[in-house]
Amino acid sequence: MAAAETARGRLAPLAEEETLSLGERAYRRLRASIVQGMLPPGGKISERGLATQLGISAQPVREALQRLEQDGMVITLPRRGTVVAEVGPAQLAELGRIRAALEGVAAALAAERLEAGALAAFAAILARMKAGTETADHEALDAANEDFHARIHHATGNPFLIRSLGSLRAYDHLGRCRAVGSMPRDLPRALREHQGIVAALRRRDPTLAEARMRAHVLRSLVTNGVLRPPRGKRSP
C-alpha cells in the first residue's frame, strides 16, 4: 500500500504545506529566514542562488521576493540589486502600533461575525494556553497564540485585513526574536488577557473586544521591548 494511504485504503489528507503553491512556500521560507536572521539585514539576495538552495525554479522565488518587497522586508537598490531591509527599533515600534490597531479592528469584526460553532474552538485554545502557562512551555504557547489570532482574522471575512495582519505579524516575530523574551511571571497576565478577549467575543461586544485586543497587543510589545512603557508607568 502506498505511503500516502491509510490502513483502510483511504488516501490521507494533504498537510497544509503540501497544498500550498511553490510561490507561497518560498515566500514563507524566505520570510522565516529573514525573521530568524539566516538572511541578515543588508545582505544581498540572489534570485538564482535562492532558487538553487530551495531546489525550485526562479519564477516562484521571484514571486516570493515581490511579496517580501511589498511587505517591506526586502528592498531593491540601484546598482546593488535586492537586499534584506534593515528594520530598526523605531520602525518596529511604528509597525507594532499599526498592528495593535488592526488586531483591534479584527477582534471587533470577529465579535460581530463569529458563528456560534466557531466560538467553541476558542475554549480549546484557552485550555492549551492554560496548560502551556502552567508549564512555561513557550513553544506550545506560541502555537496556541498563532491559532488564536488566525481564527480571529479568518472570522472577519476581510481579505485585505487578513493579508495586512499576515504581513505585520512577520515583524512581530522579528521583534520577539530580538527581544530577551517574556519571563514566566508575564505568562499568567497574557492568559488573562486572552480570556478577556474571548469573553468579549462571546458577549458579541465589538467595542470591548477591540479595546481588550489592542491593549493586549500593546502590552506584549512593551514586554518584548519593542515599545517603551507609557510615561509614568513601568513596564508590565
Rank of each mutant, 00 (worst) to 15 (best):
A116S: 06
E112V: 04
A144M: 07
I162N: 00
A131L: 15
L20H: 08
A199K: 13
N145T: 14
A127K: 14
V222F: 03
A144S: 12
L54T: 06
G157K: 06
V83P: 05
R31F: 00
L14V: 08
R163V: 01
H154I: 01
L141C: 08
E112I: 02
E139N: 02
A100R: 07
A215S: 10
D137E: 05
S235L: 11
R62T: 10
M1K: 10
E5P: 00
A101D: 15
I197V: 15
M129F: 02
A64Q: 12
V84D: 07
L102P: 03
E47G: 13
I125S: 05
A64T: 11
E16Y: 12
E86M: 13
V35R: 04
A107T: 12
I125D: 11
A93V: 02
E139A: 12
L218T: 12
V83I: 13
P236T: 08
G88T: 02
A111W: 04
S57K: 12
P229V: 09
S21F: 01
L22W: 12
P188R: 13
T6P: 03
L119R: 10
T223G: 01
S235G: 07
L208T: 15
A199P: 05
G232Y: 04
A120P: 00
R231C: 08
I125L: 13
D137G: 06
L22K: 15
V83A: 04
A121S: 11
Q66G: 12
R67F: 06
A131V: 14
Q59T: 10
A111T: 07
L11N: 04
D147I: 04
L102Y: 08
F148S: 06
S182N: 01
P41C: 08
A120G: 04
Q53L: 14
M183L: 04
M73Y: 05
M183P: 00
K130I: 03
D205V: 11
P159L: 01
A211N: 01
A106C: 08
V222K: 06
R204W: 07
I45V: 15
N158V: 00
R28E: 10
A121I: 05
L119K: 11
E103L: 05
R80V: 07
A4G: 01
S167I: 01
G104D: 00
P206R: 12
R231K: 15
P13I: 00
A215L: 09
A90W: 03
A215Y: 01
A108C: 14
G23V: 03
K44P: 02
A155W: 08
G49D: 08
S235Q: 13
T133E: 14
G81H: 14
